[in-house]
C-alpha cells in the first residue's frame, strides 16, 4: 500500500490527528525548514546531473574538430544534444517526461558507444539500455509530474470586437455610444447567425470610434460636430438592434405560418 511507503525527505510530514496538533517543537521547525530547503534545491537542480556525465564528449568534440573526423563529431554532438534535451524535458516536469528523458539518455548512450567509441552494436545497445534504466532509477518518482496545461479556448467571433469596445468605453465621452454598441454585441451573441451580416457595421463603427478615442486621449479638443456624430452612431446602433429583432420576428412569423399550415394539412387543426 502506498501509505506504508517511507516518507521521502522532501515530502511534507503528514498532518497530525485533528485536535492534537499542538505547537511545533523547535526541532520540528528546524527539520521542516531543512526539508523545504532540500525540496526546493532538488526541484531547482532536477536533471542538471545528466550533462555532467558527458564531460568527456566536450573534449572529444574539440579533438574531432581538430582531426576532422566527422563521424566522431556527429556522435559527440548527438550525445551532448540528446542529454541536454533530456535535461530540459526532465525540468519541464510534465506527465511522461521522465520516460521521454530516459529514452533520450538511452539513445545518447547508444549513439556515443556505437558511433563515437566504435564498440560493437550489441555493446552499444546494452549501454543504451543501461542509460535508460539509470535515468529511470535516478528520476522516477523524484517529483510529481503534472499534466500539460489545457490550451486556452479558441477566441469567439465577437471577442475582438468586445476588446475594442472595452477600450472605447474607457473614454468617458464615448460612454453613451459604447453602451449602444454593447447592446448590439449582446444581441449578436444571442443570435450568432446574424454576425456575418453585422460584421461590416461593427468594423466601420468600432474603427471610427477607436480613432476618435485615440485623438481624445491624446488631448484633442472635441470638435462641434462630435456630439451630433455620436448621436448618429448611437441611433444607428439602436436601428441595427431593431433590425435584428425585426428579422427575428419575421422569421418567427414564417415559422408560425408554416407550422399552422402543416397542422392544417395533417388534419390536426
Amino acid at each position: 500500500m502506498s501509505d506504508q511507503r517511507p516518507r521521502r525527505p522532501w515530502e511534507p510530514p503528514p498532518p497530525r490527528p485533528w485536535g492534537n496538533e499542538g505547537p511545533l517543537q523547535p526541532w520540528d521547525q528546524a527539520r521542516a525548514q531543512v526539508e523545504q530547503g532540500f525540496s526546493r534545491f532538488r526541484a531547482g537542480t532536477r536533471g542538471l546531473l545528466l550533462p555532467l556525465f558527458t564531460w568527456p564528449l566536450f573534449f572529444d568534440a574539440i579533438w574531432e574538430i581538430g582531426t576532422g573526423d566527422v563521424r566522431g563529431l556527429v556522435a559527440a554532438a548527438l550525445g551532448i544534444g540528446l542529454t541536454v534535451g533530456a535535461t530540459a524535458t526532465l525540468r519541464r516536469g510534465r506527465k511522461g517526461d521522465t520516460q521521454r528523458a530516459a529514452l533520450m539518455v538511452g539513445a545518447a548512450s547508444g549513439v556515443v558507444a556505437g558511433l563515437g567509441a566504435a564498440l560493437n552494436p550489441l555493446m552499444a545497445v546494452l549501454l543504451g539500455a543501461g542509460g535508460w534504466l539509470g535515468t529511470r532509477l535516478l528520476y522516477d518518482g523524484a517529483v510529481q509530474e503534472v499534466a500539460p496545461p489545457a490550451p486556452p479556448p479558441p477566441p469567439g467571433p465577437l471577442d475582438e470586437h468586445r476588446a475594442r469596445l472595452a477600450r472605447i468605453a474607457a473614454e468617458p465621452r464615448l460612454a453613451g455610444v459604447s453602451g449602444a454598441l454593447a447592446g448590439v454585441l449582446d444581441d449578436l451573441s444571442a443570435r450568432p447567425e446574424r454576425i456575418t451580416e453585422a460584421r461590416r457595421f461593427l468594423v466601420v463603427h468600432l474603427d471610427g470610434l477607436d480613432r476618435i478615442r485615440e485623438r481624445l486621449q491624446a488631448g484633442a479638443e472635441p470638435p462641434e460636430g462630435l456630439p451630433k456624430l455620436l448621436e448618429d452612431l448611437t441611433s444607428a446602433a439602436d436601428e441595427m438592434r431593431d433590425r435584428i429583432r425585426a428579422e427575428e420576428t419575421a422569421a418567427l412569423d414564417i415559422q408560425v405560418k408554416v407550422l399552422a399550415e402543416r397542422l392544417r394539412q395533417e388534419g390536426y387543426a
Binding site: 545528466l50 556525465f53 564528449l57 556522435a75 549501454l127 532509477l137
Partner: peptide, 29 residues
C-alpha cells in the same frame, strides 16, 4: 527499493553507461 538505493543505483548505472561511453569515445577519438 528504498529511494536512496535507487538514486545510488541510477548514478552508478549512468556512470557505467553514459560516462563510460563518452570516455571511450574520447579515448577512441
Amino acid at each position: 527499493l528504498p529511494w536512496p538505493a535507487r538514486r545510488a543505483a541510477g548514478i552508478g548505472l549512468l556512470t557505467l553507461t553514459l560516462w563510460l561511453a563518452s570516455f571511450l569515445a574520447l579515448v577512441a577519438g
